[in-house]
């Protein structure tokens, strides 16, 4: 009850000072009026009575000041007293305090954790050029038996997985988009010297990086020229990193590399060459992976 009144009064004091001032004016004027009337009845003249009443009041402004002072000081004092009382009560009732504080802490912690996850996964724009113009295609239509993709891999459910030929057809026929790029996640062991580790890679189409507008920080990224299906793998040398430009339409692979980047790794029993690294730490359009760009040096299965 008191708490409710305190809060209401605080709000009133903070936001309705005018109202308090008007009340004060009305109260003091009324006091003078009545006091003067009393004095007139006792035999004073009107002016004398008014003057005496004002004097009795101890000065209108001084009285107002004392009221204002009481109201504003009172707040600080009551607040300090209330806070002290609350703290003492909390200290006395240890069990309640522990339960209440841990409940609050747990609740807040869970909320913060969930929100950060939500923000990471859904709210933060992808670190690509114009992420707001990026769309994900799905094909929710009916699937023919035998043709339907039943895969619900890391790349997504059946509706969001397109076959490689379908992707190429779509890419050729599409009008509304600046570009259409394909990607598919896979898991593989990456071997570097004696060490193997399970990691995630993404098979991508040649225009993946140009569609997303990513630039290499080191070496080069896969480009449309890597989509060709002729010739032999060419090993070229840049000043720092050897990279392979493969002239056929094999899978384009993005591999998350261990910290010490070595140039050639084995993946799915095939050799990959390190091509380059993106300028920003880009984790793919699906949350999860990051890192470097590589290619199968021997040619391999096409992506689905």
């Amino acid at each position: 009850m008191t708490i409710f009144y305190r809060i209401r009064a605080l709000v009133r004091w903070l936001f309705r000072r005018d109202e308090i001032e008007r009340a004060l004016d009305s109260d003091l004027a009324d006091y003078i009026e009545r006091s003067a009337a009393e004095k007139v009845r006792a035999g004073m003249t009107e002016t004398e009575a008014r003057r005496a009443a004002r004097i009795e009041l101890g000065g209108v402004e001084q009285t107002k000041d004392r009221v204002r002072e009481t109201l504003s000081l009172g707040f600080v004092e009551t607040f300090i007293a209330d806070a002290g009382y609350a703290l003492r009560t909390l200290r006395r009732q240890t069990t309640f305090t522990v339960v209440a504080v841990s409940t609050l802490a747990l609740g807040l912690g869970v909320n913060v954790a969930l929100f950060s996850l939500f923000q990471q996964l859904l709210q933060r724009p992808l670190p690509v050029m114009e992420p707001n113009r990026l769309v994900n295609l799905t094909d929710p239509g009916p699937k023919l038996v035998g043709q339907a993709s039943t895969s619900s891999s890391a790349s997504g459910g059946p509706d969001s997985v397109f076959s490689y030929p379908t992707f190429r057809d779509l890419e050729r026929a599409q009008q509304p988009f600046v570009g259409l790029a394909a990607h598919r996640s896979f898991e593989a062991n990456v071997v570097s010297g004696q060490n193997a580790r399970l990691t995630t890679g993404i098979l991508v189409s040649g225009n993946y990086f140009s569609v997303l507008g990513l630039r290499p920080a080191l070496g080069r990224l896969l480009g449309p020229q890597d989509d060709r299906v002729d010739g032999v793998p060419i090993l070229e040398r840049s000043d720092r990193v050897p990279y392979v430009r493969l002239p056929y339409g094999g899978p384009r692979v993005r591999i998350r590399l261990p910290p010490a980047v070595s140039q050639v790794r084995t993946c799915l029993s095939r050799e990959f060459a390190f091509l380059g690294r993106e300028a920003t730490v880009f984790r793919g359009v699906q949350a999860g992976t990051s890192g470097a760009v590589g290619r199968d040096t021997q040619g391999a299965a096409t992506s689905g």
Binding site: R12, L24, A37, E69, T78
Partner: peptide
């Protein structure tokens, strides 16, 4: 004296012990 009365009245009103009504008085 009014210099002590009114601060007390306003503090009590603030603390919710008193309430004010505007009324038309005899005068």
């Amino acid at each position: 004296n009014p210099g002590s009365l009114f601060p007390a009245l306003y503090a009590m009103e603030r603390d919710g012990k008193l309430r004010c009504e505007e009324r038309l008085s005899d005068n």
